[in-house]
């Protein structure tokens, strides 16, 4: 059966090209849809009007206001240090677990790997409220400390999976070779396994940072009134009524997280180099 465009001369290549062009336009529209709100947000942070009124009038006054907004600054500070602490703890103990799961075969290993999926797939709403119930009940209570506990738990499965993927890319021979050359297990780990795993570990750390820094749901349920983190502050600001300072800080937040994820994408070869 001949293609309708497989006729004579010019028209032969025309139809596929039109289809191709339409496909590209469609993709471009999707990208516009994905980026318009982000662009609007960034622009509105520089708009004079409180009510985001148009036409646009350039001003940096909301960034100046942000510099004097004690609440938002404290919340930002809390967010950053919790994300950092989360990154250190989750990356460390997650890498240890990933190493054991990748290197040893033992009973319960499959179960342990399967246990990583409920924390990722159960909606955060349910996990967050469950943490609230349990922490309240056991006296751990709410606040930055329980927030950190929760963030680490959420980051751990991602760290174990990302480092585990790197782990799967090399066999036990490297460590065996090190042992045969006289290295103790600890020396073999520090000098061989760890450097080889490093790109995976850095990618996992970036991911863990982003999970915590962008985490709203868990933080929302676990934050105590008064000591808050940035997403929770932004939420209450939105609920109370807009202030462009929130735009300003939101823009910063979004660029920080996108920057981190860009680094993650580079490191984990996410999307591949095909």
């Amino acid at each position: 059966m001949a293609q309708p465009w497989e006729g004579e001369g010019m028209s032969r290549h025309l139809l596929p090209r039109i289809a191709d062009g339409m496909g590209r336009i469609f993709l471009a529209l999707i990208l516009v849809f994905l980026y318009v709100p982000i662009a609007v947000l960034a622009l509105m942070g520089f708009n004079e009007s409180v009510h985001y009124a148009l036409p646009f009038e350039f001003s940096t006054k909301w960034y100046e206001a942000l510099a004097g907004n004690e609440r938002l600054l404290t919340a930002s500070f809390n967010s950053v240090w919790i994300a950092l602490a989360n990154t250190v703890v989750a990356t460390t103990i997650g890498t240890m677990a990933a190493f054991a799961l990748g290197r040893f075969r033992f009973r319960g290993r499959t179960v342990m790997q399967l246990l990583l999926f409920p924390p990722i797939t159960i909606p955060w709403l349910i996990i967050g409220t469950a943490m609230l119930v349990f922490f309240f009940w056991t006296g751990i209570g709410r606040g930055l400390h329980s927030l950190l506990l929760g963030h680490i738990a959420l980051s751990l499965p991602y760290v174990i999976i990302v480092v585990g993927a790197r782990m799967a890319s090399f066999g036990p021979e490297l460590e065996e070779a090190a042992a045969s050359l006289g290295a103790t297990p600890l020396q073999a780990f520090w000098r061989i396994s760890l450097p080889v795993l490093m790109p995976g570990i850095i990618a996992a750390a970036l991911f863990a940072f982003a999970v915590s820094f962008d985490q709203f749901v868990i933080s929302y349920f676990l934050a105590a009134p008064g000591t808050s983190v940035l997403p929770v502050e932004i939420f209450s600001a939105i609920r109370k009524g807009f202030t462009p300072e929130v735009n300003a800080i939101s823009t910063l937040v979004i660029f920080v997280s996108m920057g981190i994820m860009l680094a993650f994408a580079r490191l984990s070869k996410f999307g591949g180099e095909r």
């Binding site: 065996e176 045969s180 073999a188």
Partner: peptide
């Protein structure tokens, strides 16, 4: 005796050179 105290040399099938 653990491997690292045996003083052996080993050549692996796929060499196991340290890539880094």
């Amino acid at each position: 005796t653990p491997v690292h105290r045996r003083n052996i040399g080993m050549v692996f099938q796929n060499y196991a050179l340290f890539p880094h």
